[in-house]
Simulated assay, not measured.
Amino acid sequence: MKIIAMIPARYSASRFPGKLMKDLGGKSVILRTYEAALNTQLFDEVFVVTDSEIISKHIEDAGGKVLMSQKDHECGSDRIAEAVEFIDTDIVINVQGDEPFIDAVSLSKLIDVFQEDKIKEIDLASLKVEITDKDEIENPNNVKVITNQLGFALYFSRSVIPFHRDKQLDVKYYKHKGVYAFRKQALIDFYHMDLTPLEASEKIEAIRYLEVGKKIKMVETTIESVGIDTPEDLEKAKKYLNSL
């Protein structure tokens, strides 16, 4: 089974433009993410996929592999689907460019999902981590996920889900970590679909897969990383890096 990692890297992020090129302990955010993916030694190849000449040159100068997007894209899945359509591979891992602290243990769990799926019923796998802090749960920048009893995603939302109406019951909240593993065909199918209504409303690409009937297996991890969506997140990332 051939497995590759794709890191979508858009320069003009709406909430924090140029964030992937910001300094994080002497290296850019995107370079740290690329090196972290390489250092897991889980992949046959690792690529940065970008629409930015700045990011492309930066990664190439560091000796990395880059694929340039030929079209404008609204989400990372579309960007890597265009890049991977004619690449020979079985599984594609989408590592978010603003997740520089992704770990080999969590990535291995995603790969195991497909190695154990003998009947090939799973289209995607992704990560979730339990959150307990009220501000984290209510933060719309944190995408929450709920699953069925077999661990398949039911829905993703920026709102608080589930709603804790019965306070006598314990409720767990899970944040969706922006790392996906796809069967290649599921990714290509996504690429050729139109934007779906709920996806458009929430601005969460994973919802498109659910709306068209794809099965997403959620894998719990206890290893929390620092995703960088805002300047404040970058400062948190710097503190986290210093603590390692």
Rank of each mutant, 00 (worst) to 15 (best):
F101R: 07
C75K: 02
N94M: 11
N94F: 03
D98T: 11
A83Y: 08
D90H: 07
I102D: 01
D103P: 01
A81M: 09
V105I: 12
A83C: 06
G97M: 06
T89V: 15
H73A: 12
I80T: 10
L107D: 14
I93R: 06
G76M: 05
S108C: 03
D103V: 08
I102A: 04
S77R: 12
P100G: 08
V84T: 15
V84R: 01
I91Y: 02
I93Y: 05
Q96N: 15
F101T: 10
K109H: 06
I87A: 09
G97K: 05
P100I: 05
C75H: 10
E85R: 13
I87G: 08
E74Q: 06
D88M: 05
D90T: 13
E82V: 11
D90N: 14
V92D: 08
F86Q: 14
D98L: 07
L107W: 10
E99P: 00
S106H: 11
F101I: 07
D112S: 11
V92K: 03
T89K: 04
D90G: 02
A81Y: 09
I111V: 09
L107A: 10
S77G: 06
F101G: 05
C75S: 13
C75I: 13
A81Q: 08
T89Y: 03
I87F: 06
P100T: 14
G97A: 12
E99D: 13
L110K: 02
V95H: 01
S106E: 14
E85D: 13
V92R: 04
G97C: 09
L107N: 10
D103M: 01
E74C: 01
G76Q: 05
S106Y: 09
S106D: 15
S108A: 12
S106L: 06
I102S: 02
A81C: 08
I111T: 06
I87M: 12
H73G: 07
I91V: 14
D98E: 14
V92M: 02
I111S: 02
H73T: 15
S108E: 14
I91W: 01
A83M: 09
V95R: 00
L110C: 03
A104V: 13
A81G: 12
S108W: 00
F86P: 00
G97D: 11
S77N: 08
F101M: 11
D103S: 11
A83Q: 07
R79C: 06
S106I: 09
N94E: 13
D103H: 10
I80L: 04
L107C: 07
I111L: 04
G76A: 13
V105L: 09
I91R: 01
I80N: 03
A83T: 13
E99H: 03
K109N: 12
V105E: 15
S77Y: 02
K109T: 04
N94Y: 07
D78M: 05
I93M: 07
P100Y: 02
R79N: 07
A83E: 12
L110F: 04
D78N: 12
G76D: 12
S108V: 00
V105R: 11
E82C: 06
Q96P: 00
I80E: 06
S108G: 14
F101V: 11
A104L: 01
D98V: 11
A104K: 14
Q96V: 15
L107H: 09
A81V: 15
I93N: 05
N94H: 11
D98I: 14
V95S: 01
F86V: 09
D103G: 05
T89E: 11
I80H: 01
E85Y: 10
G97F: 05
D112H: 03
S77P: 00
D88N: 15
